[in-house]
Structures are given as C-alpha cells and as structure tokens.
C-alpha cells in the first residue's frame, strides 16, 4: 500500500514541478496522470516481481482513492456558500446552460463515435 501511495505522490510532485518550471497552464496532477499512464504502458510487459508488485500495489491504492472519489469534492463544493450571490441572479440560466449543453454534447458525441466507429468493427 505504502509503495503505491509513494508512487502516486511522486508522479504528482513531478507533474507539479514540471508545470511550475515550464509555466504550463495544465494542472500539475493532470501532468502526473499522463506521466504515470506512460510509465504504466511502457512497463506493461514486465511481469517479474518489483515492477509487477508495484503495479498491483498501485491498482489497490487507486481503487481505494477512486472508490470514494466523490467524497473528495465535498469540502470545496461546500465553498459555494461564499458565492451564492452569483447563483442568486443566474441560477435558472446556469441550469439551462447545463441541461441543454449536456444533451447537445451527448448527441453530437454519440453521432461522431457512431460515424467513425462503424468503420472498424472487426
């Protein structure tokens, strides 16, 4: 468990460092995500102990963290009470944007995927 936590922290740390060093506007943790994905894919075929063990360890930690992912947005979500004035006047419009935006995005995405997905059904 500990090795998995260390690895995830390490990738986040590197991601944050890269973001600051190059002044990138991609969130540091997202850079960490991409780097860890690359590392995982690059070591995919290594089945011997240290790498395979760490990979299993990582999967356990990730499943624990992601299993309760939604709990993690509660503290910042509660912060909306500081910004209620924004919603007081715009609530219905914000809801409208979300509802129509979500429906339109779903339909477009499904159409695009169907159009390009049907060509490689093997």
């Amino acid at each position: 468990m500990l090795a998995g936590i260390f690895t995830i922290f390490m990738f986040q740390l590197v991601g944050e460092a890269i973001q600051k060093y190059f002044g990138l506007s991609i969130p540091g943790p997202v850079i960490g995500l991409v780097l860890m994905l690359i590392a995982l894919l690059a070591s995919k075929h290594r089945t011997h102990r240290p790498i395979a063990g760490l990979r299993d360890n990582l999967i356990t930690v990730a499943e624990t963290l992601l299993g309760h992912l939604s709990l993690l947005f509660v503290p910042i979500g509660v912060g909306v009470i500081l910004h209620l004035h924004l919603l007081e006047t715009q609530l219905l419009r914000v809801l409208g944007v979300i509802i129509f935006g979500t429906i339109a995005t779903m339909i477009f995405t499904a159409f695009i995927f169907s159009a390009f997905g049907s060509t490689e059904n093997d």
């Binding site: 936590i5 986040q12 995982l40 999967i59 992601l66």
Partner: peptide, 12 residues
C-alpha cells in the same frame, strides 16, 4: 487527496 486521485485516474 484530490491531487493524488487525479493521478490515480491513470489506472482505469
């Protein structure tokens, strides 16, 4: 934990 959870999205 949000930051580490973001990195962990690499696993799925």
């Amino acid at each position: 934990l949000l930051g580490p959870a973001t990195v962990a999205l690499a696993i799925p």
